[in-house]
Amino acid sequence: MSLDNILTNWSRYRKGAEEGGFHEYEHQWGMVVDLNKCIGCNACSVACYAENNLPVVGEKRCGKNQAMNWLRIERYWDEPDLEPYKATPTANVDAWIEGNPPAKKTELKPSMPSSYLPGLLELEGKSFTERVGFDGIKSEFQDFGASFLPMMCQQCHAATCEPVCPVAATYHTPDGLNAQVYNRCIGSRYCSNNCPYRLRYFNFWSYYEDAWPEPLHMQLNPDLSVRDKGVMEKCTFCIQRIRVAKDKAKMEDRKVIDGEFSTACVQTCPTGALVFGDMQDPDSHVSKLWSYHQVERGKTKQSKENKELRGYRILEGLNTDPSVLYLERVREV
């Protein structure tokens, strides 16, 4: 620990802060999610659990919102003014099909977790079906109009989680990824509070103690760690796979080829709703989709020539500059 070493490091740190992160990216990994193709099967989520050593936390902790689903499928019910569902009380479906839409309109409200606003947003029962699952959990759901939204870390280029971490445990890599250093994390959880997507998951317990009872521990992925209590974690775009691919390309003295590897969720998606790739490579599938849909990085509002193009980024108005492009679901109305 020479004085020289300290001064060099300090000036490097200062310089980095002034210039605001990396300027020359080696890659910019990005994703495209086609909601037209998503069937809400949750296979991506399961693949993520298997690939990234995510603990299955059990019903009780899941009910307390302490689950670790890095990739979650959000389910939304249709808004009440979407046409076919507007005038369709569940009980009169048959009548409607026969061409006699009932005169009385029943309002449908978007579903919310029943723990939230219990008295206020009481669902009116008529339009929602109450069912008791095999495990005794009572659930309510609509018979029509569910939409699915797979949400994984958006790998924002202007990530709100990065500047607030007191120990710089989360930072931007030259790969254009928003990295989380488990070993550096002290668990202040500020990053999660400042993530507008709420996509950061905290190890509230030592989940590993009961998540993989023997012999299940044998299926853990050796390419990455099993996290202990007190650290934040989130989707990494399967950074372990990225590393392997980059190393292999380097050894073979070539660039990473598009489609050479993909993340666990992309690999698993049965309908091909997810596409992963390097956005710096103009020939990659991802880049082509982004440019086809006229969505550009670094903007808070896209100016599309063709308004029919489906591409959008979630909450991009907040200037988080996410790396995941969503393609709107189109339905007949």
Binding site: M1, N9, R12, Y13, A17, V164, V167, S188, Y190
Partner: peptide
């Protein structure tokens, strides 16, 4: 780790963080 002590590894806290 929140304290800016001189570390061998040249790691500093994140001075941009309100914490």
């Amino acid at each position: 780790w929140v304290i800016p002590y001189v570390s061998d590894r040249g790691i500093w806290p994140n001075f941009r963080s309100p914490l």
